[in-house]
């Protein structure tokens, strides 16, 4: 087992605390099957893969991928980037990744930056080799209203009253889990954009879904894109009871013949 990055410096009042979904991503990305797939697809003789995690939260996933670059990709020139709509999450992520990267200097790739932004919007099209997303996936009446996002992002703890801080923190935490209709409103926006943002032919996405997200419908939709687009389950949380059964889809263009 590769070490889980420390997030002990993060204040979880307004940043998503690593949970079963986060750890399922760590396990899946470092299991023998995915390591074999990624090392082959991003062979050492190709330019460094660009890894983008959308919605980094505490940064535990991005820190893991960065620090374990050698163990996951078989190379140490992997470049990692993160985005989150929550400015507190972006600051937390930078620290989590930098710390893990220093502690694992002999296996670590290159951490580029975290950026405050909506999904993949700050990135150039056709530029991402590996995209990772643990989305807000819980079905809810509606998505949190983000028209005041700048206000919440700027509200620093020291200058705001406790009611302001409470409202800010509830909003930011809602953003981390509330997925709207079928829990898929945010994830669908990201999926629709995958063919543009992923590098032509070589790009791969890992997206976490829960049972309520209707993963089979998602797969069917992606296969219907044609051009070799494939979605396959590459990890799951097992048959534990409850409604939040999790799985990870790998989405990529499968251009191998046969």
């Amino acid at each position: 087992m590769l070490p889980t990055p420390s997030t002990s410096h993060v204040c979880f009042d307004n940043v998503y605390e690593p949970a079963e979904d986060s750890y399922l991503l760590l396990d899946t990305l470092s299991n023998a099957h995915e390591v074999a797939f990624l090392t082959k697809r991003f062979d050492k003789n190709t330019p460094p893969p660009i890894v983008l995690e959308v919605g980094t939260g505490s940064g535990v996933v991005l820190a893991f991928v960065t620090a374990q670059s050698e163990n996951i990709f078989g190379r140490r020139d992997v470049i990692t980037l993160g985005t989150d709509i929550n400015s507190f999450a972006c600051r937390a992520t930078a620290k989590t990744v930098e710390t893990a990267s220093k502690e694992n200097a002999s296996t670590s790739g290159i951490f580029s930056d975290t950026i405050i932004g909506d999904l993949t919007s700050p990135l150039r099209n056709n530029s991402v080799d590996v995209l990772i997303f643990n989305p807000p996936y819980v079905p809810t009446e509606e998505l949190p209203d983000t028209s005041n996002q700048e206000h919440y992002n700027k509200l620093s703890s020291s200058t705001s009253t406790s009611t302001d801080a409470f409202e800010r923190d509830s909003h930011l935490l809602a953003l981390s889990y509330a997925g709207g209709h079928d829990g898929m409103e945010t994830t669908n926006r990201l999926i629709d954009n995958l063919p543009s943002i992923l590098r032509n032919k070589s790009g791969v996405a890992y997206i976490l879904l829960c049972a309520q997200n209707k993963p089979d419908e998602v797969k069917t939709r992606i296969h219907a894109w044609g051009n070799g687009w494939t979605a396959e389950k590459v990890g799951d949380s097992g048959k534990k009871g409850g409604w939040e059964k999790l799985q990870i889809l790998r989405i990529w263009q499968n251009l191998e013949t046969g």
Binding site: S87, C90, R91, I115, I116, G117, S121
Partner: peptide, 14 residues
């Protein structure tokens, strides 16, 4: 700010 870029757009620009 503080080394982190903010790419959120005001809603009328999205």
């Amino acid at each position: 700010k503080e080394g982190i870029a903010n790419f959120l757009l005001p809603s009328h620009l999205v």
